[in-house]
Simulated assay, not measured.
Amino acid sequence: MDKGVLRKSLRLFEDNNARFAVIKLTSCNGTESVAFSDASCGFEVLTDENKTPCFVPFTEIFEKGISFLREIENNSCEKIERLQGPTNDALLCLDRFYKSKEQNEASLRKVFDMGWEDKPRVTETDITVCLAEHLIGRLAPRESCVLNSMLKGNNCRCGCQKEPTFSPTGIGHELVWHGFVDIIFSSHQGMSAIAHTVMKSKEISPKKRKRDEVDDRLDDDSQRQITEDLKQKSPNYKLEEAFAQTIVFSLTENQKHPNCLNHMVPNIVISPEKFEIVLYDAERDILLCSNSIFLFNLDLPEHRSLTNEAIIILWMVLHYEIFCSGFEKASNDVLVKCKSNFKSLVESKWDIYSNSLKICVPEFPPVKRWSINELLHRGHQLNLH
């Protein structure tokens, strides 16, 4: 592994440009039989006593990962070679990605640059397959992932001839939030991560991207705009959809692996330009959402390359089981302050969320919706005396 890359990546993290907002839900329709695409959440971000939005640095939530990189940077090659288990596997995965980085970048550019006018035009499915085959799937544990089986029959448009793995990706329960995610990743120890792809309706000019990049860094002067920034992210999807997917998936993993120590399960919401990370800790009921992180170096748009920051963040997030510290060291007061309120909002259906969620199902049975006439016809008279 090139230590120069690690040094550059660690320096990038020192400015805390990658941050998480703590999300507080004020309402949601999670007690209803609702698909993710129709999920609705009222939300605000955690603020201090002066009503200034609070954030948690990426370096705090992924403190284990940052410490690991510093250790690798300072250690000799001999010590690195003696690494065993998941940490060694993760480092080898990152090393393999950097060795094929230029090839993967060429494939990404080829598909992303096809545009809406190409025949056949590029679709969101094309974007999903390409990202899985040449970026996030290559950085994941075991370099493995499955795509929604509803996308079956679509190979990567870059011409690499790779055949994606398709499988049912339905999660949730038909009586509450449910639906299908684009990609589910494998893991070292049985827990997983998910990704949701987004396709922009039009290309954004490099000049506009530069301005957005400054805005998305969320410096101290723009902290008061954090709620508005979150609500305006990625216009082709609702942020509530990502919240619902992440919460349900994390609760599903918690249901499957109740003895695991780390329940801060991630959802990567990614487009051809940038990505956000949504995290939900099912054990502590804490929901986080990051600022936008740009994928490419924009100095030379026609020869753009993936940034080290984006690669390292995606790699750490996908290997969150070993790199994510979450709120392990937080005080009880902080844990209470950071609760998302999801559990209390869906209390009437909590038994389903905690015990009956499904995963990797091909379809959900329809839920009968009675009309008022049907309900009155089947009901019984209320005795008023």
Rank of each mutant, 00 (worst) to 15 (best):
R378I: 00
K339A: 08
F249A: 03
D212G: 10
D2E: 14
L10E: 03
D113I: 08
I312H: 14
H263M: 09
A242T: 10
N332Q: 12
I204N: 06
V214A: 12
E105F: 09
T128A: 08
M114K: 15
N308C: 06
S205P: 10
L46W: 05
K343N: 09
G4S: 14
L46H: 08
P235I: 09
I61G: 03
P266W: 04
M150F: 01
T169M: 05
I270D: 06
F323C: 08
S186A: 10
A242D: 02
F275D: 04
D215T: 12
S144W: 06
K208Q: 13
L298Q: 12
M191E: 10
K200A: 10
D118L: 03
N254M: 09
V336F: 08
E273N: 13
W116R: 15
Q161A: 11
D2Q: 10
V122E: 12
I322W: 01
N297S: 11
E102F: 11
N29P: 04
D212T: 03
R70V: 04
S167M: 04
N254V: 00
W116A: 13
S67W: 00
I352E: 08
P120C: 07
D221T: 10
N50D: 12
T227G: 09
M150G: 12
Q189T: 14
S201D: 13
H188I: 00
C130P: 07
T169C: 07
N267A: 05
I66N: 05
F275E: 05
Q161H: 14
S9T: 14
P57Y: 07
K233M: 14
F20C: 10
P301V: 01
D299G: 00
N291A: 10
I311C: 08
R142F: 03
F180H: 10
S348L: 11
L25G: 02
I372L: 15
W350H: 09
S37A: 13
N373I: 03
P366E: 15
C28I: 01
K8S: 13
F185E: 04
R378L: 12
D15S: 15
P365D: 11
I194F: 07
E228R: 12
T227V: 11
I313D: 03
I194W: 06
P164T: 09
P366N: 11
F342W: 14
